[in-house]
Simulated scan of single mutants.
Amino acid sequence: MIVFDCRRFLRTIRIAATALAALTLGVAGARAQEAEGVWMREDGASKVQFSPCGGGLCGTVVWLKNPNSKAHIGQKVFFDMARADQTSWTGQAFNPEDGKTYSGKIVVNGKKLRTSGCVLGGLICKSMNWVRAN
C-alpha cells in the first residue's frame, strides 16, 4: 500500500521551486555581465556597439553627439577583445583623437562598463566609463 505524505510532497515542491528560482537568477546575473550591446560614454559624447567578431568582441561607433569629432560612425575602436574572465575582456583599443592603438581592457559591472587603453605594459592608462544604452 502506498501512503501519500502531503508534507513531504510540498517540501519537495518548495525545494524544486527554490532551486529553479536560483538557477534563473544565476543565468540573469551572468547575462548582466555581458559586454554585447550598445553603450554610451558617461559624458554622452558617443555610443559604441559591442558585438562578436572574429572569435572575439569588437566595438564600433554607432552614434556621435558631435558629428565633427575625429571619430566617425562605423569606425572600429575596440577589436580582438578576448574574454579574460567572467567580467572582463582584453585586446586592442583605438583612440580616434590621437590616431593610436593601445592595449585595451573592458570590465563590465552590471549596467556599467569601464574601458581602459594602456601603453608601456600598463604603466600609463586612460579609462572611460560607459552606461548601457539598450
Rank of each mutant, 00 (worst) to 15 (best):
V119A: 10
F50A: 00
L23G: 14
A35K: 00
N68S: 13
S88A: 15
C125Q: 08
A45S: 12
F94N: 08
L10G: 07
L20D: 02
K70V: 10
A133H: 09
D85N: 14
M128D: 09
G37Y: 03
F79N: 08
N68M: 06
M128L: 15
V107G: 00
K112S: 12
R31G: 03
R7S: 13
W130R: 05
R114V: 13
R41E: 07
R7W: 04
G104N: 09
R114T: 15
V119G: 06
K111M: 12
A71Q: 05
A84H: 11
N109F: 01
A16L: 15
W63F: 12
L120I: 06
G59W: 03
V108R: 00
V77P: 02
N68D: 14
R14V: 14
A30H: 07
R11S: 11
D80C: 11
G117T: 05
P96Q: 10
T90W: 01
T101C: 00
T24N: 12
W89I: 03
L113C: 10
W63N: 10
P52Q: 02
G110V: 04
M40V: 11
V27G: 07
F9M: 05
I2M: 01
S69D: 14
D80V: 06
I73Y: 02
S127I: 07
K65I: 08
L57A: 08
V108L: 06
K47T: 09
Q33L: 14
S103P: 00
T60L: 11
S103K: 13
N95I: 04
V48I: 15
G99K: 15
G74A: 13
A82F: 04
F94S: 01
A84C: 03
G110H: 04
T87V: 11
G29C: 09
V107E: 01
W130M: 01
W130G: 02
A93N: 08
K112D: 12
N134G: 15
A28H: 01
A21C: 11
I2W: 01
T101P: 00
R7H: 10
S51H: 08
G99N: 13
T24L: 15
C118M: 09
N134T: 00
A71N: 04
L64V: 02
I13N: 09
E42W: 02
M81D: 12
K65V: 05
S116T: 11
G74M: 12
E34L: 14
W39D: 07
G55H: 06
A93H: 09
I106W: 05
L23P: 07
W130Q: 02
G110K: 08
S69F: 07
V119Q: 10
Q92W: 04
N68E: 13
S103H: 13
V48S: 09
V131R: 14
L25M: 12
G29S: 15
K112F: 09
I124D: 00
P67S: 12
A30S: 11
C6M: 13
K70Y: 08
R14N: 06
R83Q: 15
K111P: 05
G121K: 09
A82G: 04
I106E: 03
V131P: 00
T60C: 10
